[in-house]
Simulated assay, not measured.
Amino acid sequence: MQDIQPRGLRRTAAAAYIGISPSLFDRARAAGVIPAPRQMFGVALWDRHDLNSLFDGKPAMKADNDNSSDYWDRECATGNLAS
């Protein structure tokens, strides 16, 4: 039978996959260097493809708003329906 390599990795396995300790993984994650995990079935999983992008020199995916201005947040939340 062929070994199956999971695409989703838990924190410790994700750290080992890229060759660093879990504590360094946590610090790099907090600094925004490592992409955020995906929540699947109540478990935080790092996508192997996202981790591969670190070695390809691509920036980490950002799920949060990386815009320094909240212009659209203000404009869309005004409730002003008259145009």
Rank of each mutant, 00 (worst) to 15 (best):
L54G: 08
R48H: 09
Q39E: 14
R29T: 07
F41A: 14
A82I: 12
N52K: 13
K62L: 06
Q39K: 13
E75N: 04
A36S: 14
F55D: 02
R29A: 08
S83V: 09
Y71W: 10
G42Y: 04
Q39T: 13
Q2A: 11
A44G: 07
G8M: 00
I18E: 01
P6N: 02
G8L: 06
R48K: 11
M40W: 04
R29M: 02
C76N: 09
D64K: 01
W72T: 07
L45C: 08
R11Q: 14
Y17A: 02
L54V: 09
I4M: 07
D73P: 03
R7K: 04
D64I: 00
A44R: 15
T12W: 01
A30T: 10
C76T: 07
G32V: 00
D56K: 10
F41D: 11
I20V: 14
G8A: 01
R7P: 04
R7A: 06
A13D: 09
G32Q: 05
G79Q: 05
D73R: 08
P59G: 07
D47C: 02
G19S: 07
D66M: 14
D70G: 02
A31W: 09
R48M: 03
R7S: 06
I4T: 10
D26E: 15
G79K: 00
A44S: 12
V43P: 00
R10K: 11
A28F: 15
P35V: 08
A36F: 07
E75Q: 12
D56H: 05
N52Q: 12
P35I: 09
R74D: 13
D3K: 03
F55I: 10
A63L: 11
P37F: 06
P22S: 09
Q39Y: 06
